[in-house]
Structures are given as C-alpha cells and as structure tokens.
Design a protein around this nucleic acid. Structure first.
Lengths: 226, 226
DNA sequence: TTCAAAAATATTGTATGCAATATTGTATTA
DNA sequence: TAATACAATATTGCATACAATATTTTTGAA
C-alpha cells in the first residue's frame, strides 16, 4: 500500500484511506485492524491510531471502543440528511465561485472535467466515483470559504460511501456531463442556471440511489439459513 | 484541572479543553504544552495528543509541526466566513426545529434559557458566552440533522474564540434576550419570524465585533519600544 | 559589552512494550 | 453430541522510552 519512501504523516495516511474508501476499495462495514494498516503503511500503530481518530471525526470510520475501527455504514436517514445538507450548502458555493472565480480557477475546473472524461473513457468506475466527489470538493475550495470547504471535504467522501451502499454496481456511475454543464454556466456567470443545474445534479444522484429499499441494514443474517 | 476520579476518554479531554476555550480561560494564541495538559488531566501524552488532533480538526487548535499546539487565533476574514456560514445554516436549523420540536424539546430550550438568565444575573460573563454558544448547539441538535449538528458543534466554539479576540471585554456579553424571543417564535411555530429573529441575532453578534479594526493581529510588537 | 557559537534544556514525534479486553479454539462434562 | 467453561490467540488502549527538533542559556572571542 505504501509506495513512497518518505515517512507518511498522519494526514497523508488518513488521505490515502479516504481515497481507498471513496474508490470502494475499502467497502463500508469492513474492519480496519491497526496492525495491518501499520505494516501496510510502514509506520507504527501510534500514527495509524491518530489517522483513525481523524477519519472517525469525519464520520468515514466508526470507532467501537475495545472493538476496533470500521468503515462507516451510513443509514438511509443519514444519507437523506447528507443530501439535504448538500442542497443547502452547494448553491452558496456556486454563488461564491461565480463571484470569485478567475481564469485560473476555471482552468482548474476544466482540467478536472478532463480527468473525469478520461476515467469514463477507460470505464474505471471507481475512479469516476472518486473524481465526481472531488469535483464538488474543488468547487468548495474555489468558493473561498474555509468552513464550507471543510464541510464539503467531509460530505463528499461520505457521499461516495453512500453510493457504494445504496447504488447498484451495474448502474452507470454518475449523470454523464452534468459537471461540465455546471462549469459552463459558471463560466458564463449565469448564477440562476448554475444553481439550478447543481440542485438537479444533486437530486439525480440521490434519486439514483435506492434509499427506500432495505439494503441499508447490510447482510440479512436471518435469510441465510433458509 | 482534573476533578473526577475515572480515567478520562479522549473526547472528554477534548470537551474540557473546548469548554475552557469557550469560556476564554484559554485565550487565543496560547501554547498548549502536551506534558502540562497530561499532568493536569492525569493521563499520558498519548491521549492528550489524540485530543489535540481532534481539536485541531475542529479548528479550535492549530498544530505547528515540531513546534506545538496553539489555541487558534482566527483572522477577521475567517470570522466573516464563519458568520456567512452560520447565516446560511441556522435558518435551516430553525425550520427543522419548528417542524420536529416536541414538548420535551421546547422544555430543553426553556431550561437552557434559564441557565443563561442565571449566568446573566450573576454577571458571569465567561459562562454567558459559553452558554450563548451552546444555545445554538442545542438548536442544531434538536434540528435532527447530524451533519448540521456537527458543523455547529465546530462553529459555535470558534465563534466564542472570535468574540474573545474581537470584542471589547467591557461590552455586555450578548444581546439580552434574543434567544428567548427565538424560542417564543419557535413555540408559536412562526417560521418566518423565527428565522428573521435568528438572522438579526447573528447580525447583532457580528456587528458587535470590530472585525474592521486591526485588533486581529494580536499584540502590536512594533509599538512596544516607543 | 555584544554577538555568535555551542552546550544545556525543553518539547515534540514516533516506536515499542505491557496491560486490558475481545475473540477464537479446545476440551470437558452432562 | 451439544453446551459450557476454560485456555489460547488476537487486538485494542495506554504509558513510557528514546530519537528528532526547537528553544533557551551559557560561554567565549572580538
């Protein structure tokens, strides 16, 4: 798992685990044994422990005292709350990006869209999901409000988790080019349209999930001995 | 500093430090030496370290690598962003509280108001500031959205910090009974008025601060040798 | 005396070791 | 054989020790 030679800081460890969760390489519910991670990253458990507390703070990992750390398994209710929160915050992000975005910012957005296109071309579904999340994180960063940026840096990885839980693996990952349309509207400084597109985008993501079905509780143990 | 006998969990340590910051017993900019905290709380540095990473995640403490942990000293810009964020989020909180609040929830709010009144009667300015912050945290909790609750649990202590930095100590802590008026409007299910009161309340807090003055940079070292 | 170099001290960063707890495997008994 | 108690193993929680880095104090020369 560790590719670099330099010793990893706890933030970097947390980031790598976050990426792995976003790409569904670490599925919701899986146990994260400290020693395994420690040897995987080539550091001591102390650092892993600190990384896990960070991730737990972000809600990506849940700590059960004396039991261990598990990748969080959000409930359908939490998923709904998450989308409510995103629909509350992301219009403000769009407004601020339109207000502040310079040419370089737009270039960053376009560059990100290209990465998404490339991942789609390759059919790399895991990367598509992670990049889709990171698009919104980039938008939040460009909005210039550090609190909103930090909030989105929590909500986006969690959204990926929720997609992992509630989406059918067969479904084509994300609404195709909605991100591109949002960027276009931003480039044209069309606030109303950009916000509208963003809200529809979020609705599409949520509606593609099956939050009403009983997938949420995970494995149905009762049904196993039939 | 440690009053209980049982060993403190990391969260409890973080909470106590948070309270101390909210009450301005730990002023912005002060260094938090791990060993001092460790002996104060009767635990090892390991736990303190984890508590500090939590607090740093919340923005209440800033970690300078190899230098140490310092109580954050927010800038005026960050203060403005914070209030922007609160004005974005708290109307939603009010809406949800009105939608969901049962009799017991309202009783909790009233009980909190009494605590505030008591602190005001005693002239305990520190407690007033902390309780004022915790009023908004309670509202967020009653709103039933865990993400918004968590966000407010970060923003409120930071607001206390900002008040510590930018408010004149002489000023009477907070607008007198605006919290009570908000609770009244909520009890009457008057959404528009409640939101209006909340927004005005937030404006009052922000305008009581001197975010435009150059208080922010802390001590004016240049002016000391004149 | 003043400045800079160097020693001494303080503090952080990390790994390791041990105790506490949980989980798994085994044996014993009804 | 099935259930339960007990032992073995695995894992977490925590403190401590040591290395790396920063800060302060002391020393010595200009």
């Amino acid at each position: 798992m560790d590719t670099s030679l330099a010793k990893l800081a706890i933030d970097e460890i947390a980031e790598r685990i976050t990426d792995a969760v976003m790409e569904h390489r670490l599925p919701p519910g899986i146990k994260l044994v400290e020693e395994k991670l420690a040897s995987a990253f080539g550091v001591s458990r102390t650092k892993i422990r600190q990384a896990l507390t960070l991730l737990a703070q972000d809600g990506l990992v849940t700590l059960h005292p004396n039991k261990g750390a598990y990748v969080t398994r959000p409930t359908a209710d939490e998923a709904r709350d998450l989308f409510v929160t995103r629909r509350l915050v992301e219009p403000e992000i769009v407004r601020n990006v339109i207000k502040r975005a310079c040419a370089d910012d737009l270039a960053q957005l376009r560059a990100h869209l290209e990465k998404e296109t490339e991942a789609r071309r390759l059919g790399d579904r895991r990367r598509i999901i992670r990049l889709s999340g990171q698009f919104h994180m980039l938008m939040a960063r460009l909005s210039g409000n550090s609190f909103i940026e930090k909030l989105m840096a929590e909500l986006c990885p969690l959204t990926c988790l929720i997609i992992a839980l509630f989406d059918e693996p067969q479904t084509p990952a994300c609404p195709e080019d909605e991100h591109a349309m949002i960027v276009d509207a931003i480039a044209e400084r069309d606030e109303e349209r950009a916000i509208d597109l963003m809200l529809h985008h979020l609705h599409h993501i949520e509606q593609a999930l099956h939050l009403d079905q009983q997938v949420e509780s995970g494995i149905h143990w009762e049904a196993l001995y039939g």
